[in-house]
């Protein structure tokens, strides 16, 4: 009887040890797999439709549109100081796209998740807050704006819609996903292709937001140019 109980206890001990062996083996290899997953780098195609060079050429267009206004020889009907103010806002936004930090971020050949996170941070801090909110929102906010231009008031509702869509982007989802890249799991190529491949899809999403803001600025600068030259 005593031998039977001791043998039984021994079996339980070895079973428990076996389970622990399995668990630690699983956790160890899951971690190796996760190391490989988080060190994945995405290399954007050079023929991609969105590149920093293409963005820069559009930035030049915005700069050119803004530069048509010259206070010393402006003969139009709009308030000269308001036109100067808008020009200054556009130039401030352009500067955000031309900063060295952003150039460095976009000069990378391949992107790790942390690089995408930096791109995202730059976009939210400098482009979205520094340009769209601080510079542009003031123009279209009819209650608070100091700009009295009738031409601006006519387009303000449309510009406000554009700004709202820029502010209501899906980047909070991308941000939380990137920040949670320390949660480990086994994924496969199928799920990456059909659901969400963290580095690649986050990069594309962030980049599309950079260009959406650029679309808005380009449209606005074209309107500005038309007002200056036509008014």
């Amino acid at each position: 009887m005593k031998k039977f109980i001791v043998d039984y206890i021994h079996i339980i001990a070895m079973t428990l040890t076996g389970l622990l062996f399995g668990l630690s083996f699983f956790l160890l290899f899951l971690n190796f797999y996760h190391v490989k997953e988080v060190s994945y780098s995405y290399t954007p195609s050079e023929s991609s439709s969105i590149t920093y060079e293409k963005m820069l050429s559009r930035i030049n267009t915005i700069q050119n549109n803004a530069s048509v206004y010259n206070q010393s020889n402006y003969q139009g009907s709009e308030d000269a100081y308001e036109m100067l103010g808008i020009q200054s806002k556009l130039n401030n936004c352009v500067k955000k796209y031309q900063e060295e930090n952003l150039k460095k971020l976009f000069s990378k050949k391949s992107y790790l998740a942390k690089d995408v996170f930096e791109l995202l941070n730059y976009y939210q801090n400098n482009i979205l807050n520094g340009c769209v909110v601080l510079q542009m929102y003031n123009l279209v906010d009819t209650d608070q704006s100091t700009y009295k231009s009738d031409q601006l008031k006519k387009v303000a509702p449309f510009l406000k819609l554009e700004i709202d869509s820029l502010l209501n982007n899906g980047l909070s989802y991308v941000r939380s996903n990137l920040k949670n890249n320390d949660i480990y799991y086994f994924s496969n190529d199928d799920s990456k292709n059909t659901v969400f491949e963290l580095t690649r899809d986050s990069y594309q999403e962030v980049l599309s937001n950079y260009t959406k803001t650029l679309d808005f600025l380009e449209t606005f600068s074209t309107w500005y140019k038309d007002i200056v030259l036509g008014g």
């Binding site: 630690s24 956790l27 160890l28 971690n31 190391v35 790790l112 998740a113 942390k114 890249n181 320390d182």
Partner: peptide
């Protein structure tokens, strides 16, 4: 194996730059 796993996890928490 169990202690190795614990050490690797601690090292990754300290050294793995790819974790955001």
């Amino acid at each position: 194996l169990s202690f190795t796993t614990i050490i690797i996890v601690a090292l990754r928490a300290i050294l793995d730059n790819n974790l955001i």
